[in-house]
Design a protein around this nucleic acid. Sequence first.
DNA 1: TTGTATGCGTTATCAG
DNA 2: CTGATAACGCATACAA
Lengths: 331, 331
Amino acid sequence: MKVTIYDVARKAGLSIATVSRVINGKGGVTPKSERKIRDAISKLGYLPDASAQGLASSLVNTIGLVLQGSVSAAYYTQFLDGAERAARERGFDLLLTSTYASPESFAKTIRTRHKVDGILFTSINEYIKPLYDAGFPLCYAGRRLPWDERHANVYGGFGGYRKEALSLLLSRGCKKIVYFEMIQTIAKETSRRNNEVIEDFIVTNGLSPEQVVYIEALTSRCDHAYGRLRELFSSPDRPDGIFVVEGTIAPTVYALLSQCGLTVPDDVKVVASIHEPDSGTLLRPALTAYLVNANKMGYNAAVKLIQIVQGGTPDDNLSYVPYDYIERGSV
Amino acid sequence: MKVTIYDVARKAGLSIATVSRVINGKGGVTPKSERKIRDAISKLGYLPDASAQGLASSLVNTIGLVLQGSVSAAYYTQFLDGAERAARERGFDLLLTSTYASPESFAKTIRTRHKVDGILFTSINEYIKPLYDAGFPLCYAGRRLPWDERHANVYGGFGGYRKEALSLLLSRGCKKIVYFEMIQTIAKETSRRNNEVIEDFIVTNGLSPEQVVYIEALTSRCDHAYGRLRELFSSPDRPDGIFVVEGTIAPTVYALLSQCGLTVPDDVKVVASIHEPDSGTLLRPALTAYLVNANKMGYNAAVKLIQIVQGGTPDDNLSYVPYDYIERGSV
DNA sequence: TTGTATGCGTTATCAG
DNA sequence: CTGATAACGCATACAA
């Protein structure tokens, strides 16, 4: 049968209150008593019941993670790994929710009370607002937000490196640039921001709109996108620079350029965003890229959120995870 | 303040027992009463407290997922997505544990009582055994196991397509074959099985050991692996076939072969394993591959596990997810 | 069909 | 420093 705190107390010859104190490290317990209790615990193989603890303490030591499908697999796994590590280090678990699922079920899950102590998310939807207003512990990881002090925000300068990448190509003499991004699921927000970045870039640098081509495609229908790319690079008015979002598709872009009879970086300069330091090192020429530390973003986000869950507002609810520019040979 | 079942009962003019019946769809409630209760629930915005439900019913509607780090990002995300969908469809949540973390922390999580109703895992470690012996609901997804009926097993014929891939290359006239696999973290078990597959293949086909070269590398130190690959394909005694585990690295392999002045499939035949139907369609020549339906594996695994959690043994605790051979142009 | 009362395993507040 | 005991919110026998 199930071993409860009563069994431990009986075996140790003490009360459940004292056992509880030992379990939670509250102190105020004789070393001798503590020893007896720890003995009993290990002898009986006692493990506290999470539901009972949750009910009594209104803290379930779990944070919810909402990952959107519009991020790359590389970003996804890295972010997840970082968040998981941070949570586990602090005795917290991670409850996963994907927005691949319907928003309704998502809302139901996150609002089921006391299933999580706080929520970490990477995309904003209508169901977040009520939680925000209610002061429920929240942490958004992605771009920078005009965020309340009660909540946390981890950002990685997405807009920053995007603009920087385009500027880089420009500074290397490119006259016509492609902004190429592959996404897993549709996210209007992403498109909108990309367009914003591009427009801003055009205006700032006094370019004409035709000088920057934006191609966004779902991974599930990538044929079309690559077809368009091939067409573009085969035309007489072909681009001479390309910014690839997510370096894992860079090899394919290289292959495609090669098929068009173009060489990197002489004919076309390539720059990408990556999520692992080594990504793209094996291409020839090696890929010049902006490294987004997704792992660290996940880690920091979980840390901040747990700080809020545990002790009110952290010293700083904002966390910037810098990206690195790694110059190799493709620009 | 928190809305409880008492508030609902009071507002509906009925008892908490009746409210509970409605919530859990137990039946035996007048349509009129039910209507009143549903009214009260929505008016008050009542949501049951998961901890209290868990404590009273000893079912927390959550399954634990243990993903090992030695799988590719593509496999990882697909599997996760499938499992998540299946769980959510059935009102279950997913609690994530990565074994990127230390085994100790993993053990701590799974041994916390009543945090999960069952565990779904993709790698076997020492901490699983006690759970297995205790009859705790378990589901292993990966290869086929000599599994107890109380537990579930979803397998995808990993050994099958690996052997098949090698045989395919052989049947296309290859005399020397490379078995190339990139992994995220070290997994002795994987290496061992790969070696087994290879040895078996060599014996079965009466080959000499030098005819099959096994290269396994961590993604974090892929330079070495690619260096070795380049060396191999530059030698006079170069291979004429390669099996690439995880198609996302196929473009890089193509690039590497191209650098060595070799063409696919004339000089070298390439076959890979993939996790998304479209993977590799854009290479030239398009990639011939074995499609492992990771998403379906995750889905089926979660379904089986939940069946066990909910209703004892399912009709069939074994589930085979077939892989597809997709012939394109690289062999 | 509905209500009452008890138990689930903790935490936390008081007295002692 | 320790021990009763009252919550915590819900499910469920048992009564009515």
